[in-house]
Amino acid sequence: MHRTITAIALSLALLTAHPAANASNPFAPTESQCAAIFKATGDKYAGMWLGEDGKLVIGLTSPVELDPETQQMLHITYVRYSMAELQRFHKQVVIKNFNNNQHIAGSQIDYKINRIVITAQKENLSKAKELFESQGIDTRFVRFEAQHTTVTFMPLIDDGSCKGPL
């Protein structure tokens, strides 16, 4: 109980301290706006995240027509891979082939950098890279990072972005 209260208090303190959380005009899309965004972007959608200025950033693989009001509230950035491509690569290549590999500590999709992030302990990082290269896997999708600390589970704070097609 004490840990839960402490975690909530810490989360609220971090939320209050983060400048993006205190943006004067935050945009938290409604369900209908999210649905409209997903409909308009289709397979060009590459994720959404909270920008440094508190404005939602939407990643797209190419231009799309969005409602002018919604478009004003978003910052659009163009990226190479769609969300579907990243998810497919993560599931069909990374998880299928390397899920229980001793040299890989973890993997996740990072929509902001538009890559799959593979983490490994520093001494295993080159081995992790070699695993992908030896199987002829296109590593343009991948960013390899050394895991410097142990994993600490923390509560997630909703950034107000659309989470996925409704």
Rank of each mutant, 00 (worst) to 15 (best):
H2M: 12
H2P: 02
T4H: 14
T6P: 00
A7F: 01
S11Q: 13
A13T: 12
L14C: 08
L15R: 15
P19L: 02
A21H: 10
A21P: 00
P26S: 05
A28I: 11
P29Y: 01
Q33L: 07
K39C: 05
K39S: 14
G42I: 03
D43H: 08
D43E: 08
K44A: 13
G47Y: 10
L50M: 13
E52H: 12
D53I: 01
D53V: 04
G54H: 10
K55Q: 14
L56T: 00
L56W: 06
G59T: 01
L60P: 06
S62F: 00
D67E: 14
P68W: 11
E69G: 11
E69S: 12
T70I: 15
I76S: 09
Y78C: 06
Y78L: 06
V79F: 07
S82K: 11
E85L: 06
R88N: 14
F89V: 09
V94K: 08
N101T: 08
Q102I: 12
I109D: 03
K112N: 10
N114K: 00
I118S: 09
T119L: 03
A120C: 07
Q121N: 14
K122G: 08
E123D: 14
E123Q: 14
L125Y: 11
K127M: 12
A128L: 07
A128T: 09
L131D: 09
E133C: 02
E133F: 08
E133W: 13
Q135I: 04
G136E: 07
D138K: 07
D138E: 13
R140Y: 10
V142W: 05
R143G: 05
R143Q: 15
E145Y: 01
T149H: 15
V151L: 11
V151A: 14
V151G: 13
T152D: 14
T152A: 14
F153C: 12
P155I: 12
S161H: 13
